[in-house]
Design a protein around this nucleic acid. Structure first.
Lengths: 155, 155
DNA sequence: CTAAAATACTTAATATATTAACTATTAATA
DNA sequence: TATTAATAGTTAATATATTAAGTATTTTAG
């Protein structure tokens, strides 16, 4: 079958940029699988992985502005609005306008949001352990550094 | 400030599982940045990165079932339904029920969908080049292999 | 052969993401 | 100082993703 054989040639020639063999797809899938694993582990707490990202920012520095969080996570402000809405409903955080600059909305941890600091990081650790069970410390370090370079290339 | 100092201790102790330092977040961001870059390059064609994933599957084997594509991309059937809906509206593919098993819906490339095979892979390549500009061939290979292992750990 | 289980797909509800448009407030400048 | 520009945030529209529920068809088992 000539059509099937030319197909194979095409796939071989372009393999590096075709799904499911290419870098972009593999990054997407790896990220997605970690998301699914973590989402399941967060189920008992009624939280999502994105809630965890925002909590991490606030555990490090409470009272960040919406755009402060967006910058730290390189997410868009419009996305943060929705996430913070749901986190507020979930009583993890609350909003307060900055009095010196009324444009700014600051996000503060509630008691519940603070307490989760003693619980969630070890939950997140479990997903990392599951993902890297057969990957050595030095390989993990190498991977993180490669990801940093890739991120800075596209930033 | 004792609260700020205990905060630093906390961040140092849990750094490996806290955003924006942890593996999960970095994978998410890397994937997201490649998505944004590719989405922009696909703008002139009115396509999304997900359309490209499906096209790749069909270029390799036309007439796959919906669940065949879902399996190949490790995506959920429910997601594929929506994507194929929009690809059908965009005249990239069309659906046809399998006559031997009426449960199965097969997805076929239109002429337009076929022609893009000569155009899009080199567009995808550009995003990969941008992301890996300062990363050597051997490092890229190492990264792909590490991603494969991570993916298989969570599959 | 028929009831139950399994498979393939779709629909609906909710939560990210992205872009564009819009409001409110503050900063810059002519 | 009055106007313009910039910044911070929200809203709306559209496109992924995930889960759960539902329909149609085929397979399996009793």
């Amino acid at each position: 079958m000539s059509s099937s054989s030319s197909n194979q040639e095409f796939v071989e020639q372009w393999r590096h940029s075709l799904a499911p063999y290419n870098l972009g797809y593999k990054l997407k899938l790896a990220s997605q699988l970690m998301y699914r694993d973590f989402l399941e582990r967060l189920q008992p707490y009624g939280l999502t992985p994105f809630h965890y990202l925002v909590l991490c920012c606030l555990w490090e520095e409470d009272g960040l502005s919406t755009s402060g969080i967006a910058d730290k996570l390189k997410q868009l402000g419009a996305t943060l609005t929705g996430v913070v809405d749901r986190m507020e409903q979930r009583s993890l955080v609350y909003r307060q306008r900055d009095n010196r600059d009324r444009r700014i909305v600051r996000i503060w941890l509630t008691d519940e949001g603070k307490k989760l600091m003693n619980v969630l990081p070890s939950v997140g650790e479990k997903t990392i352990f599951a993902a890297t069970q057969d990957i050595s410390e030095s390989e993990q370090k190498a991977m993180l550094q490669l990801l940093d370079r890739l991120i800075s290339n596209l930033s």
